[in-house]
């Protein structure tokens, strides 16, 4: 590579940090394999969505400031979640409506913020990752990744090159899984019905694996799949792309 390697700040996301660190390591491996220098700023917790979506602008703004300060020194911010990437890119600038300098910094950061598979494909133009996964998988499009970030073809293109993996599309891959952050605990009955529909759709594909780019959705759908006694394996797409599938799938021992 002739130009200096891109300096990437990995925004781990709170769910990956707390629930499933392997996704973070998979993201680091994919980025490093693609020639990036990856850093993980210690001053990160969450993107602030729980506060933002609950109408708590003050806290959302404070958290946004913290993220901007921690990440604006990097060439790129890469996030293994379309939802948190969307928060940074699409929603941060609006939090500083009355504050032009901060809004400018937020926008500048947003423009350099990408969901992981999107960054690999659209920015680094990685044609192919060296990975193998034996199984048939279906992909769930997280809502914010799909509609705010434009993530759709990128993970599929990368997965298409994984040896041993066959991809089967669900009829309703683009329909919300019913997670919705705090929604799922505030309205458990409705959320339960929606995730049931998602599970039906996953099962109808006959796939043995469910992949996705957002841990929130995956915890939700895995939780329902397991409750219904299904042995479908659920993993974050980064795990498969990085070949880090030795550990248990989500919700399995």
């Amino acid at each position: 590579m002739s130009s200096p390697p891109p300096n990437v700040g990995l925004f781990v996301t709170c769910l990956v940090d707390l629930m499933r660190p392997v996704v973070g390591f998979a993201a680091v491996k994919l980025l490093e394999d693609a020639g990036c220098v990856v850093s993980v700023p210690a001053a990160q917790t969450c993107c602030g969505q729980p506060a933002y979506n609950a109408g708590d602008q003050t806290d959302a703004r404070a958290i946004a400031r913290q993220v901007i300060a921690a990440f604006e020194g990097f060439d790129y911010v890469v996030v293994p979640s379309g939802s948190c990437a969307g928060m940074i890119r699409v929603h941060f600038p609006g939090l500083f409506a009355g504050d032009a300098p901060m809004a400018g910094r937020a926008r500048a950061l947003g423009e350099r913020t990408f969901e992981l598979t999107q960054f690999l494909r659209d920015v680094l133009q990685v044609p192919d990752v060296e990975a193998e996964y034996i199984g048939t998988a279906t992909y769930h499009d997280g809502c914010a990744g799909l509609r705010e970030m434009g993530v759709k073809e990128q993970p599929r293109a990368l997965l298409a090159a994984v040896r041993g993996l066959e991809l089967k599309e669900g009829g309703e891959a683009e329909i919300c899984c019913g997670f919705g952050g705090l929604f799922c605990v505030k309205y458990p009955d409705i959320s339960g019905r929606i995730v049931d529909g998602k599970v039906d759709d996953v099962l109808a594909t006959g796939a043995d694996t469910l992949l996705g780019g957002d841990l929130g959705c995956l915890l939700n759908v895995a939780g329902r799949l397991k409750r219904r006694g299904s042995d479908v394996r659920v993993r974050h797409v980064a795990e498969v792309l990085a070949g880090m599938t030795d550990g248990p799938p989500i919700g399995d021992p």
Binding site: V16, L18, M19, P21, D189, D196, L219, A222, G223, R227
Partner: peptide, 14 residues
């Protein structure tokens, strides 16, 4: 109420 909660890995990524 309607789904299991997948267990965390036990150590945080950071």
């Amino acid at each position: 109420a309607s789904r299991d909660l997948p267990a965390p890995a036990g150590r945080t990524f950071l």
